[in-house]
């Protein structure tokens, strides 16, 4: 069972719809026992970092997430991916889950590019990742974000290019994070979710 962690963030159903479509059982939950018994966890998220961490704090799940995330496959999506890092500077300074070293900062793309990055961008492979199985280098995925993670290169599975390198897919042990939305990235995104569900 894949547990999609519910902390009041939007977009939970899109992730569940995609998993349903692929035929994987999932449940949206903020229940401790569910998180413990899950064989995989997904942390979705849209909105602002500080607000999302506050909401997550209120579920009382933070310590449990930190301990479970290193025991079983854990996927953070978009803001959920940013929350994997140590710190974010979105509207202030906030502590993240600290599962992967790095910080989240406002993007400063070179050239005449707008913020947020919104739309389909191609992945540039950096390091092997199980999530990229059967996906070609250069595959397009759907991004919507203004902030991006800056983290050691060794944890970056793929970058995207948006007026400079943008951290797109990260991995450290059992912890995975996608800055883009696999649940909105067509066939490529579905393949990636399948790869996660088959880990």
């Amino acid at each position: 069972m894949i547990i999609i962690i519910d902390y009041g963030a939007g977009n939970l159903f899109s992730v569940q719809n995609a998993l349903d479509y692929l035929g994987y059982e999932s449940k949206i939950s903020s229940d401790k026992d569910d998180v413990i018994s899950a064989d995989r966890l997904i942390l979705p998220g849209v909105g602002a970092f500080g607000d999302a961490m506050d909401k997550l704090q209120k579920t009382g799940l933070i310590d449990l997430i930190k301990s479970e995330a290193v025991k079983k496959p854990f996927l953070g999506i978009c803001l959920g991916m940013q929350m994997l890092f140590e710190k974010s500077y979105e509207f202030g300074e906030y502590e993240g889950l600290g599962l992967i070293p790095g910080e989240v900062k406002l993007m400063e793309p070179e050239g005449n590019l707008v913020i947020p990055q919104m739309g389909w961008n191609s992945l540039e492979y950096n390091h092997q990742s199980a999530l990229l199985k059967d996906i070609d280098n250069g595959a397009y995925v759907y991004f919507v974000h203004s902030y991006a993670a800056e983290c050691p290169d060794e944890f970056v599975s793929a970058y995207a290019n948006y007026g400079g390198k943008v951290t797109a897919l990260v991995n450290k042990g059992t912890v995975y994070g996608a800055q883009f939305h696999p649940e909105k990235s067509g066939e490529i995104g579905l393949q990636m979710l399948k790869n996660f569900a088959e880990l």
Binding site: F13, S14, N17, A18, D20, Y21, Y142, E183, K184, S185, G186, G189, L190
Partner: peptide, 8 residues
């Protein structure tokens, strides 16, 4: 549609 189509 959201159950069958996975683009924005």
């Amino acid at each position: 549609t959201a159950k069958r189509v996975f683009v924005p």
